[in-house]
Design a protein around this nucleic acid. Structure first.
Lengths: 384, 384
DNA sequence: GGAGAGCCGCCGGGATTTCGGCAATTGCCG
DNA sequence: CGGCAATTGCCGAAATCCCGGCGGCTCTCC
C-alpha cells in the first residue's frame, strides 16, 4: 500500500557525485531519510561507485543521468553557489546534480537556496527547445534494495494505458482507443519512490506527467526559502500540463510524496497528439480549466482569509471527506505541523499555536494518530 | 480614447427598478460616478420610466432585462438581505437586479454585502444548464445620453472577427478563416460602459467573453467584503473562458474598468466550436495555460511575500514597462491607494503608509499625476 | 537498551498590519 | 469661485504573526 508520509522506510546507501574542484565546506546534520552512517563523515567522499540504474525505467525515459540521493546534510550556501557557478560557466552536469540533490534536502534552508539557484539558472530557464541541455529532466533517489525490481515500491504496475482501469482515470485519459494507443506509443511509464523531483520551478518545460498512482506535491518557494505547497495531485491527475502547453517555465516544483507510477509525455509529442486528436485537446482544456478553478479558489482562501486560524480550519475541513455527515469526523493525521504550515503559508510555530488553541477549545481532538473533529460547523464558523 | 480610471465622465439619469413591497431603509451618499442630483433624495422614487435599451446591443445578446445604474447610495445591508430573500423565495427578478446593482456600488461595504449574497444565491450557483433562470447574464449601466449610439463611449467598433486587425488578437482569435467565420456566427458583439458586471463570482457559467477593446477587472470577494483584484484583462484577452469550459462556477467577478467592446460566446456554442475546429481547442488550451501560469505566479507573489511593502513594490514594478531601461520610469498613476490595496490584498491604510514611506526614502516621486521611479533596482531590492 | 533525529510545545520580543476615526487636500461640477 | 465628495495623511490601540531558541517526547536504528 501507499505510504502517506514522506519518511518512508526507504533505506539507501549514500552515493555521491561530486565536482572535485569545488571547495567543500560542510556541516553535518541528519536527515529524515535514514542514510548509511558510514558515509556521514566530514566532507563528502567522492566514491566513484555509480548508482545502479533502476530496471523499472524504460530506456526512453528522459533520464540522461542517474540522480544521487538527497544529501542529508545541511549544505553550505556558499558551496551551493559554487556549484551553481560551476554549472553555469563550465557546463558541469555534476554540479547541476548537486544543486538538484540539495533541492530535495530535508533542511529548509538548503532546499531554499538550491531552489533559488535552480530557478535563476539559465540552464533551466532557457526556453529554446533545440538547446541540448546536458541536464537530467528528473531526479530519482536510488531504488531501495529490499524491493524486487519487478514490483517496485509495492505498487501495482499499470502496463499500458489501454488496459488502465483506474477509477479516476477519466480526468485526462478517457480517450477513444485510437488516441489511447497513440498516447501509449509516445508516453514513457516509470515508477518512482517518494521524494523524486519531477521538475523544478522555473525550469523550461519538457513535458507533462500523468500520475497513474501515488501522490505528487506541487510547491513553490520564495527567495527566502519559504515553501508553499499549492496542491497535491492524486492518482489520475496530470502534473506539468500547463507548462507543457504554454511553453512557459514550470510554475511549481513537483515532487513525489509517495511511491508513484508516472507516465511521461514529451512536450512535442503532446502537442502533436493534440493536433491529431481533438479529444486530447478537449481533455486538456478541461483539465486546465479545472486546475484553474482550484487555483483561483486557493488564491481566494489564502489571500483573503485574514487570520491563519481561518486558513488552518479550512485546511482541516478540506482534508475531511465531505459526504460523511456524522457527528464526528476522523482524519488520519498524516501531516506534520510543518507541512500544514507550508500549505497555508504560515510558520510552523503559528500552526502549533493554533492547533493547541483548537484543542483547548475542544474543536479538535487527537485520538492517537487520528484527528477528530467533533463539530464540523464550529470549525466552519472559524474558517470565515 | 479609452479612459484609464473608473470615474469617467459618464453622466446619467438615475433610473431605479425597485421591488415596492420591500422595506426601504436608505442612507444618502454621493458616488464617484456623477449622477443627476435631482433624483438624489431620501429613499428611491420608483419612477416607472424604463432605461432605453442601448442600440448597440444585438437582440441576441444575453440580456433579458435592462440593468439599472449602480445605486450611488450606501445601501443598508438589511435591505440587501431582504432583496436576497425576496429573490430566492419569490423569484422576483427585480430584487435580483437590486442585488446586482448594489454589487456595482462604489461603497465597499455595500459592494461586499451584495457580492456575498450573490455568491450564496441559489439562482447563480445552480449548475443546471436547463434551468431557465429569469435573471440577466449581464448588468449594464444605462448608456450616457451625450454619446451617439453609433459610436458609443468613443470606441472604434470592430464589426466582425474576420476583419479584426487588433494587434494583440493573436491571444485567442488567430483562427483560420473558416473557424473565424464560425466564431462570428455564434458570437454576439456588444459595447459596454465602464462598471458593467459581466458575471459574478459563484455564478453558473453562461459563456465567455472576448475582450475586443477596453479593460476588465477580475476580482474576488471574501465574506467580510475584502476585495482582491486578481487580474485586469486587456484588449485581445478572453474572460470567463475557464468557467465556460469546465462548467464550474465563475471563480471571479468580471467588471469592465473602461468602456469596452466585448464578444460574447455562449458556452454550448463554444464547446461545439471546439469540437468542430481543433484550432479552437488548441487556442483555448493555450489561453488557459497562460492564465494558469500567471495565476500561480500571483499566488507565489501574494502569499510568499511576507511584507506588504514587497507586494507593493512588485505591483509598482509590474505597472512599469519592462523594456525601458532609462534612469527614470514614469507611470501615469491611475490607481487610487484603495485600488492598489485591493490588488495586493492589503488595507488602504497600509498602502498609504507604505507610499509615503517610499516617498520619504526617495524611492518614488510624484510629478503631478505621474508616478516616477528614479531607481528601478532599489525598488526591485524591496520586492524580495 | 542507548543514541540520535525529528517533531511538538512554548516563551518573549519584535515587527507588521489592521481598525476606527478624523482632518487636510484635491478635483470636479455647478 | 464655492461646495461637495473622494482621496489622502495620520494617530493610537489592538491584534496577529514571525523569529529564534530551548527542552521534552517519541520513534527508529544500531
Amino acid at each position: 500500500m501507499l505510504l502517506t508520509k514522506c519518511n518512508q522506510p526507504i533505506q539507501s546507501k549514500v552515493v555521491e557525485r561530486f565536482p572535485e574542484s569545488v571547495p567543500v565546506p560542510s556541516k553535518i546534520a541528519r536527515c529524515r531519510q535514514a542514510c548509511d552512517h558510514s558515509s556521514l563523515a566530514y566532507g563528502w567522499n567522492d566514491s566513484p561507485s555509480p548508482t545502479p540504474f533502476p530496471d523499472t525505467l524504460p530506456e526512453s525515459f528522459p533520464v540522461p543521468e542517474i540522480a544521487p540521493t538527497a544529501h542529508p546534510q545541511v549544505v553550505d550556501p556558499l558551496y551551493l553557489f559554487a556549484c551553481y557557478m560551476k554549472w553555469e560557466r563550465e557546463e558541469d552536469p555534476g554540479a547541476g546534480w548537486e544543486l538538484l540533490a540539495a533541492a530535495q534536502s530535508c533542511h529548509s534552508d538548503t532546499r531554499a537556496h538550491a531552489r533559488m539557484l535552480l530557478t535563476s539558472s539559465r540552464h533551466l530557464a532557457e526556453t529554446g527547445s533545440g538547446a541540448k541541455s546536458n541536464f537530467p529532466a528528473i531526479s530519482i533517489p536510488p531504488s531501495p534494495p529490499e524491493f524486487e525490481m519487478k514490483a517496485p515500491y509495492g505498487l501495482d504496475i499499470i502496463e499500458n494505458c489501454a488496459g488502465c482501469t483506474h477509477p479516476k482515470s477519466g480526468f485526462f485519459c478517457n480517450f477513444p482507443p485510437t488516441a489511447l494507443q497513440a498516447l501509449d506509443d509516445i508516453s514513457h511509464k516509470s515508477t518512482l519512490p517518494a521524494g523524486a523531483i519531477l521538475y523544478v520551478e522555473g525550469q523550461a518545460p519538457r513535458g507533462m506527467f500523468i500520475l497513474c498512482s501515488g501522490r505528487v506535491h506541487l510547491s513553490t518557494t520564495s527567495r527566502e526559502g519559504k515553501i508553499l505547497i499549492l496542491k497535491t495531485a492524486e492518482a489520475g491527475e496530470v502534473v506539468g500540463l500547463s507548462a507543457a502547453i504554454s511553453g512557459m517555465t514550470y510554475e511549481t516544483t513537483a515532487e513525489t510524496a509517495t511511491p508513484s507510477q508516472l507516465n511521461f509525455v514529451d512536450r512535442k509529442h503532446l502537442l502533436e497528439l493534440m493536433q491529431t486528436y481533438n479529444e486530447v485537446s478537449m481533455s486538456t482544456a478541461h483539465c486546465l480549466s479545472r486546475d484553474f478553478h482550484t487555483a483561483y479558489r486557493d488564491i481566494h482562501d489564502l489571500v483573503l482569509t485574514r487570520t491563519s486560524a481561518g486558513k488552518l480550519a479550512r485546511l482541516l475541513l478540506s482534508q475531511s471527506p465531505k459526504e460523511i455527515e456524522t457527528a464526528e469526523i476522523r482524519i488520519p493525521s498524516s501531516m506534520t505541523h510543518e507541512e500544514m504550515a507550508h500549505r497555508i503559508g504560515a510558520s510552523r510555530e503559528t500552526v502549533t499555536r493554533l492547533i493547541s488553541s483548537l484543542k483547548r477549545r475542544h474543536l479538535i481532538r487527537l485520538d492517537g494518530p487520528t484527528l477528530v473533529i467533533p463539530d464540523r460547523t464550529a470549525l466552519e464558523a472559524l474558517a470565515v
